[in-house]
Every structure is written in structure tokens, then in C-alpha cells.
Amino acid sequence: MVIALEAREKLATRTYTGVDYALLGVSGIIAAIIFYAAWYVWDAFSVLGPLGRPLSVGLWFTGSMIAATLIKKPGAAFLGETLGAIIEAILPTRGGFWNIVYGVLQGGFAELGYRLLGYRRWDIIAGALAGALAGIGELLASLLYYREIFEALSDVGREITETGAVSPSLVLVYWLIANMISGAIYGAVASGAVKSVGR
């Protein structure tokens, strides 16, 4: 029997039921597989240097859009991305447990996107917005992890900046813009894909 998924949206409660958690599981494993594959995409694109980032980083944000588009409840974007990241860490990938930090921050900022829209839109526009914002979360986690790249932004490195070939602040700006563009594109694609299969 095919059950009408649409009718679920009319449920008065926004608390999670077993169905929501099961759908979260579905989104979590699909996201984890995408995250896992994204490492290879990332490596393949690394031959393009900095141009590789906008082409692939957004793949790591899609756990939010898959979960949100499926579950359509507050918290789904955050939980979906976090769950995907936890599974990715267990699978494992070379990011190790730090993946979870990425997941939490990316998921948190993606959640903000859906929240800004009042949790009323779950379409590709919302997906694009959430994806773009997730790019900020990625940057925050990267500021810690890749501290050696960005450090010149602080006082410690100011003198170095003047002698370096490229300014680290330029790296920061590029990093953020690349994240947001990539996140918006992959976010829209992920939302669209889920929308067209969701029953």
C-alpha cells in the first residue's frame, strides 16, 4: 500500500514520531554515503587548486536539505547533517571525529536558513538558502582546523602578511564565497531530488 506522505504535513504536532526518526535514518545514511563519496570528488578536483572548493564542498552540506525536505519539521536540517557526519566518522573517512564538528556547525547554519523562512518553505529556494548559510558553518570549523592557513589574520601573523605572496584575508573571503555558492547549488539540487521522489 502506498501511503500519502503529504498528509503527514497536516499533523498538528511538530514533535518527532517514529516515522520522522526513520526518515532521519534514511536521510542520514544517504547523506553519509554522499559525504563519503565527496572525499573522492574533492581529491579529484584538487588538481584545479582553489577552484576545486566551489565544485565540491557543497556536497558535504546536503544532509541538511535531504532531511529537511523529507521531514519538514524544525530541527530536521540540523539533525540530518549531524547524523550524516556521525555515520561518516564511524564508516570512517579521513576527517575522523572532526567531521562531527563540521556536521554540527554546517547543520546548525542550514537550520538557520529554514528558520529564517519560518519553517514554511521546504523547496529548492529554501534548500539553496540553507546550503549557502551552511557554508558559514564550514568556514567556522575550518578556521580552527586550518588555523595555520588563516592565522595571519590575527596580530601574530600581521607582519608575515606583508611579505607573503597572497594575503590570507583574501583566502578567507574566497573560502567563504566558494562555500556559499557551492552550498547554494548543491542545496538546491538535493532539495529538488528529494522533492521529486518523495511520496
Binding site: 502506498v2 501511503i3 506522505l5 514520531t17 517514529g18 516515522v19 520522522d20 526518526y21 526513520a22 526518515l23 535514518g25 534514511v26 545514511i29 544517504i30 554522499i34 535531504i66 523529507l70 531530488a193 528529494v194 521529486s196 521522489v197 518523495g198 511520496r199
Partner: peptide, 16 residues
Amino acid sequence: IMPILSISIERGLWVG
């Protein structure tokens, strides 16, 4: 991904 997602969603609903 789409056919896999489609089948997984159906499974997920019932498992839930």
C-alpha cells in the same frame, strides 16, 4: 541516488 532514495523512503515510512 534517486531510485535508491525513493525505495529507502518507502521503507523508512513503514519502519517508522
